Computed example of a mutant assay.
Amino acid sequence: MNKTPNSSIKCSVNNCAYHCGEQNYCTLNEIKVGCCDANVTNCASTECASFQLGGPGGCKH
């Protein structure tokens, strides 16, 4: 499946269905950021709510 990297969204989560292979970008047009905790005080308390489990994909160059 060919995907186009979105150079505005960097990502290193290789097992996400929207990850752009070795380029470390997301292929979505936009992402949703969510919270893991009710009281967010640091980066670890946030998550990419657009994550979908999948394998690394190839991207259009």
Results as ranks from 00 to 15, higher is better:
Gly57Phe: 00
Thr27Asp: 14
Phe51Gly: 02
Ser12Tyr: 06
Phe51His: 14
Ala44Thr: 08
Val40Asn: 09
Lys10Met: 03
Asn29Leu: 04
Glu30Gln: 15
Val13Asp: 10
Lys3Cys: 10
Tyr25Gln: 00
Thr4Ser: 12
Ile9Glu: 05
Thr46Ala: 10
Cys35Tyr: 09
Asn39Tyr: 07
Val13Leu: 09
Ala17Glu: 15
Asn2Ala: 15
Ala49Arg: 08
Cys11Pro: 02
Asn14Ile: 07
Glu22Cys: 01
Asp37Tyr: 01
Thr46Glu: 05
Pro56Met: 09
His19Met: 06
Lys60Gln: 13
Lys32Phe: 00
Tyr18Arg: 02
Gly21Lys: 08
Gly57Thr: 11
Glu30Phe: 13
Ala17His: 14
Leu28Cys: 04
Asn42Leu: 04
Glu30Arg: 15
Tyr25Ile: 02
Ile9Pro: 02
Gln23Glu: 15
Gly55Lys: 15
Ile9Leu: 14
Cys20Phe: 00
Cys35His: 03
Val33Thr: 09
Asp37Leu: 04
Cys36Asp: 05
Ala44Trp: 05
Gly55Thr: 14
Gly55Glu: 06
Asn6Trp: 10
Ser50Asp: 08
Thr4Glu: 11
Ile9Thr: 04
Ser50Trp: 06
Cys59Gln: 06
Ser7Val: 06
Ala44Val: 02
Leu28Phe: 02
Asn42Arg: 13
Ser8Tyr: 11
Ser8Thr: 06
Tyr18Leu: 03
Gly58Thr: 14
Cys36Trp: 00
Cys59Arg: 03
Gly54Asn: 12
Ala38Val: 08
Cys26Glu: 05
Cys36Pro: 01
Ile9Phe: 05
Asn39Ile: 04
Ile9Ala: 07
Thr46Asp: 04
Cys48Pro: 11
Pro5Asp: 15
Gly34Ala: 06
Val13Pro: 02
Thr4Cys: 08
Lys60Asn: 14
Gly34Arg: 05
Gln52Ser: 10
Ser50Lys: 00
His61Trp: 07
Ala38Ile: 09
Lys60Leu: 11
Tyr25Cys: 00
Lys10Asn: 04
Ser7Gln: 12
Pro5Leu: 15
Cys35Glu: 13
Gly34Ser: 14
Asn15Met: 11
Cys43Leu: 08
Ser50Tyr: 03
